[in-house]
Design a protein around this nucleic acid. Structure first.
Lengths: 324, 324
DNA sequence: TTGAAAGCGCTACCAG
DNA sequence: CTGGTAGCGCTTTCAA
């Protein structure tokens, strides 16, 4: 584990010079540079980023605090965030806080305890003030509130697309299963849009709500069972995520319904698996890459003190496949 | 952003004392402690982990370098790794390097550039020597070689379970689709076991191989298409991961085959979605939690200089569901 | 173009 | 039980 001192000694220059060649910060004599480079490779030197961060007063790492990596939506987003951050020369530290607020606070504080220069996260309910008070630049994904910077999909549009599509396919009684309607989640707009669209078209509708815990544990069996047990005459389902939609699909099929003839199903997120099941799922596509890019660039701007809009939204898209 | 100096001044003690109360490292007068605690909360002080890491010569962060977070297997594993690390008081930094060796080296070096004390990763082919040479304690998951510490599932057992199950269900001609047979991947053993079992039972078999790139991009359509196009009379498929198996399932159904009557399918990994499609997938369950725990505890031991076995294996389980 | 040296915020050793 | 202080490895003035 050689240090900058070793390199300096080996090359017969000062540490300042070595530092300069590492950072390309100022003009350096070509010979000197070569000597340093040689010494570096001879000693297999690689700079200690911790020391560097301390000296610079900041580091090149942003944190991504999400509910749960085993949720495909967040995993995919994490993937895109990491890719984008890396392309800007930044690392990302991922941390998750699935279920309760205390875990969330702990995880957030841990991240902001200055291992990271900025944080990308989502509200899990009641965290708005907390985040607003934080000294670490933070941008949220899929959340909305006044106090902090947010990036989210146009969930109202998604709700409208899904509902209108189901109606246009002839559905007369539609069931909607939402995620947990936590305060400040932009996804709530899907549900509101659904209700509004149904009312406007005079279509019968009914709402079910899953809990965050159900979601994290993929424990949808109970609620999906209820949907089918309590309703005999519905002909459409709009599920708030694709996992839930798949579950509805498989339950419908196992109960002998034909999809899409008897029941039509629209999901949300467009996770990769959705195109690979049978029948392939009609769903609302979220632009993961755009969402991630916007979030990363926004924190980076925040870190650099650049002015950015408080609220940014990205459009969604209806992907019609086999379940409608 | 107050520092330890500010706290010391405010509390009228030395920084050494403040440091002691932060770390609980030695006996401290109750009054002094209270003064310090008060000062800390008054100044909203939170210790700078970077400085702390530098001073201590190590930090509390391990790196997890995986192929791709959008692969459910790795995402789930990452989730478990993070959970386990956190329970030991460690953070984890996730980084991915999907396709090529250069990216992999870059990502690895970046991680080992001392932002992390240890690394958990997997070989992506030809990386064995590279990792063996590294000064950062490293343990691999799903890889095997002489030079470094590894944790993996018992893939031979998995291959045997899957193949025997298919045979016991009456399959006479079985097709196996494997992942890319990269050197030192423990998953290769699934394929070898498959071939051996088929030969021993005198069952006809045929092999297909997907590439890493196909896998990362979920681009299985081509190969699955070929399987069905080139073979008319097969009655069993053993796919090396559940995504691939789902794809086979949906292709079979869309082609009019009945599953499991006409074709039986066994997957691998047991990702959450596998239980939620229709028919639910028979598959080999990998013990994610055990795998993650073993990997985390092994790096931690390595970091602490504790002796650990070079090779650790965890058993798998056959989960019989609807596709067989 | 280069070197000397003062920190970055914290820990840990040595005295007292 | 507490304080003084020398680093941890690197960056960045300030001089030369």
């Amino acid at each position: 584990m050689s240090t900058i001192n070793d390199v300096a000694k080996e090359a017969n220059v000062s540490t300042a010079t070595v530092s300069r060649v590492i950072n390309g910060s100022s003009r350096i004599n070509a010979d000197t540079e070569k000597k340093v480079l040689d010494a570096m490779s001879k000693l297999r030197y690689s700079p200690n980023t911790i020391a560097r961060s301390l000296a610079k007063g900041h580091n090149d790492c942003i944190g991504f605090l999400l509910p749960d990596l085993s949720m495909p939506f967040w995993a995919k987003l994490a993937h895109e965030v990491e890719k984008c951050a890396k392309s800007h020369g930044w690392n990302v530290m991922i941390s998750s806080a699935p279920k309760n607020l205390d875990d969330y606070y702990a995880a957030y504080n841990r991240l902001s305890g200055s291992m990271v220069s900025g944080i990308i996260t989502t509200f899990i309910g009641g965290t708005a003030d907390f985040i607003g008070r934080s000294k670490t630049p933070t941008v949220t994904i899929g959340s909305i509130n006044e106090g902090s910077h947010s990036v989210s999909s146009n969930d109202e549009q998604g709700g409208i697309f899904a509902t209108r599509h189901l109606i246009s396919r002839g559905c007369k009684k539609i069931i909607h299963i939402s995620g947990e309607m936590l305060p400040q989640r932009s996804s709530n707009a899907r549900t509101y849009a659904f209700v509004k669209e149904c009312e406007q078209s005079g279509i019968q509708c009914k709402l079910y709500e899953t809990s965050l815990v159900d979601q994290v544990e993929n424990d949808y069996a109970g609620i999906v069972g209820n949907v089918f047990y309590e309703n005999a005459d519905f002909d459409g389902i709009f599920a708030s995520n694709d996992i839930l939609a798949s579950m509805c699909l498989s339950t419908a099929l196992s109960l002998g319904y034909r999809v899409p003839q008897d029941i039509k199903i629209v999901g949300y997120d467009d996770i990769p698996i959705s195109a690979m099941i049978y029948p392939p799922l009609t769903t609302i596509h979220q632009n993961y890459q755009k969402l991630a890019t916007l979030a990363v660039e926004t924190v980076l701007n925040l870190i650099n003190g650049v002015d950015v809009p408080m609220k940014q939204q990205v459009p969604v898209e209806l992907i019609v496949r086999g379940t409608t």
